[in-house]
Write a protein that binds this DNA or RNA. Sequence first.
DNA 1: ATCTGAGTTTGATCTGGATCAAATCGCGAC
DNA 2: GTCGCGATTTGATCCAGATCAAACTCAGAT
Lengths: 239, 239
Amino acid sequence: MDIARSEVFEAGTPIACRSCQARHGVVCGALSNAQLKELNRHSLRRKVEAGSEIIAQGSESSFYSNIMRGVVKLCKMMPDGRQQIVGLQFAPDFVGRPFVRESTLSAEAATDAEICVFPRNLLDRMIAETPELQRSLHDQALNELDAAREWMLTLGRRTAEEKVASLLHLIATHAEPQTAISAAFDLPLSRAEIADFLGLTIETVSRQMTRLRKRGVILIENSRHIVVPDMDELEKISA
Amino acid sequence: MDIARSEVFEAGTPIACRSCQARHGVVCGALSNAQLKELNRHSLRRKVEAGSEIIAQGSESSFYSNIMRGVVKLCKMMPDGRQQIVGLQFAPDFVGRPFVRESTLSAEAATDAEICVFPRNLLDRMIAETPELQRSLHDQALNELDAAREWMLTLGRRTAEEKVASLLHLIATHAEPQTAISAAFDLPLSRAEIADFLGLTIETVSRQMTRLRKRGVILIENSRHIVVPDMDELEKISA
DNA sequence: ATCTGAGTTTGATCTGGATCAAATCGCGAC
DNA sequence: GTCGCGATTTGATCCAGATCAAACTCAGAT
C-alpha cells in the first residue's frame, strides 16, 4: 500500500471514522465521543485492493488500522522465499503491533478491502489513557493467540486432507452465520495462498480439493466459490 | 496438579507472594503495595514436579499462576491422541487465559517448577482496576503471539533439520545470557516432547540431533545436556 | 552386582506429500 | 471470436520423514 511510503496524513481527504456507522472497528468501538472526535481529525478511510501491502515485514510502521470490509492476511517470509501465512483477519479487527515499532510480519489485503487508518502516536496515547481500549485490544490479542495455537496444531499434526478441510471450515465459519447446516462462500485466498497457509504445495491443495469434491463433501462452483452441503461432514474430516 | 481438583485456597499454607523477592512475576510486578498485600492473603506459592498438570484442556480453571522457576509447556491434544506443544513458558511468565473460563489447552510443568497461584476472581478484579497490570498482561500476550507466529513458520515451512536447530536455538536463548558465542544448557523436554513441539516423530528428532552432533554443531553430553560451541552456526542452520 | 524398564538411538522399509512436467481452464486484450 | 497468459488441475516420479523393528543406555530397584 502506498500509504506506507508517502506521508499519508498530509495527503488525501480524511474521512470521519464515525462513518463506520453501523459497524465500529475494535478501536473506535471503545472510545468516548470526545476521543472519537479527536481521532476523526487524524484518521483516514482507505480502500485497498487485493494484493496491496498494508504493513511490510521488517519495516517500521507509523500507523495502525481497523479492517472495515474484506480480508487481510498476515505473512512471514524467509530469506530464501519460503512463506507462511500466520493468520487471517476480518472486519472489525485491529491491524498492527502495539508497543513495538518494527513489524515481524507483513499484512496484505487478501481481497479488496476498506480500512480505517490511525496515526501510531495518537493511538498509542489513547491506548495508554483508555483502559477500555486497552482491554479491547488485549481481548483481540488473546483471541488471535488462541487461533494461532489452534493453527499450530493444524500445521504440526494434521494430514493434508485435514488441513484443507480445516481451512474450508475456518473460512465458512467466518463467512456464514454458522447456524446453517450448509454453507456457500467465496475463498479469499488463491491456491498458492492456501498452500502457504497450510504448509503444503499448490498441487497438494488442488488434489485434496478434488478429492473432497469427488467425495461430495464440497461443490466447487469455480475455483474461488465453494458450497458445503453439510458442515458437520467437513468438520468431521478436519478432525 | 492436585490443586485443580481440591480446594486450593482453603488447604495448604499460603506463602506471601512478596517472597518472590528478587524476581517478581508478571502479575506482582505491576501491583501497588496495597494490592500486593491483598493478593498475598489469597495467593499460594507452590512447587510442582515435572509432568504434573497445572491446567487441563477443556476444563474450567479457577486460578491463574506466575512461573517463578522452571519451564511450563502448553499442549493441545486431539481426540485420537495426536498432540502438539504450542508454547513454552519461563519465569516470570503469567499462565492462564484471562476473560475466558474454559481452557483450550493444557499447561504442564516440563521441569520441576515453582509457581505463584492466584484465585481467578480476585485477579480478574485487579486486572479491571489496574491499567498497568492489564498492560503487562497485554504485553505478554502480544509477545506470545509473536512467538506463536514465528513457530507457525517453523512448523509449516522448515525442514526437520531446521526445526531441530530452531528448537535448540530457542532453548539456548532462554537459558543463556545470549551474549556468549557458545552455550551449554539442559533441555527441559524429552525427545517425545521435542517431537510434539516440532511436529515430527521421536526417531526423526533423534536422527537430526545425531547429524548435528556428527557435524560438530552440538555436543550431546547426555541426552538432556547440550553444548553449542558456536551459536551463529546453529542460527544459520535454523534458517 | 544384576535386573528392569523407560527413554533413546539406529536400522530397514514404506508412503504422503513434494517435485517435475504437461495439460486445461478462464478471462481480459485485441 | 481467439490470443496470450496466469491460475489451476492432473499425471509421473521422487524423497524426506514416517513407520516398523531392534538394539542400546542408564538410573533406579532388588
